[in-house]
Amino acid sequence: MALVFCGVCSHAPGITGRAERADPDLREPFYAALGGMRDGLHATRPDALVVVAAEHFANFFMNNMPAYALGMADSYDGPIEDPAWLGIRPRTVRGNPDLSRRLIAEVQQTVDVAYAEEWRFDHGIMVPLHFLDPNNVLTVIPGNINCQGPPLSPLRRAWAFGEAIRRAADLVPERIALVCTGGISHWPATPDSGMINEAWDRQFLDRWARQDKAGMVSYTDQATYCDAGQGGFEIRTFVAAAAAARGPGTVHFYAPIPIFAVGCTVGTLEIV
């Protein structure tokens, strides 16, 4: 039927795994913003939620790394990490392989997306689902953009992937929600974990909110690496969301939370 919801959020494992170590004055407003996103998402009564993430070697490795992938399984298990480490209990998430197949076929008209009938969710999808679907009621189709193992697909191709998802969502009879999840600047899992380039983040989010495509896709990976760390490569997910929604974005929450290792972000985009 249509794309009915489009948003972005952070997914860092510390958000749940190290929750008690964060400043409550930052953590609670962030959690509240995620709660607002959850309410907005469910109010659109989606038949399926597509979560485009930037996974971290849970399923895809440098032996055979897809630039873009979509799931096509009956169900998905997660988290792949130690549940105690992540602070999220295991769950089996319902998929819809028939819908996946139709979406993938349309996406492939313009993007050579890989598909996967096996997919285990890591924190990149589990942290968003923990907040956005706490009762595990939604049908989920996972997506992935390789943001970990260079060479990485160019930003303009992430834009094309978002456009393709939008076109596919508009063609199927189901109501499709899209959540794209990644960090902006961050240096996760390195000794620099906790460094956040707030000015860089705010510039990117400004471009994102204004649908400034030229600005969003202008970052070279080399510049991103210097200014925004290896975690900055995950802006591909935000770029895809902007391309899918076509309308202006609203940043409902942004604040650097160092123990979560990322500038924590919640945003939604108007679908036009």
Binding site: G14, D192, S193, G194, M195, P258
Partner: peptide, 13 residues
């Protein structure tokens, strides 16, 4: 995954 801060820097996270 190189380190960009100095050897003895304290990083907030």
């Amino acid at each position: 995954y190189t380190m960009q801060s100095g050897l003895d820097d304290k990083v907030a996270g």
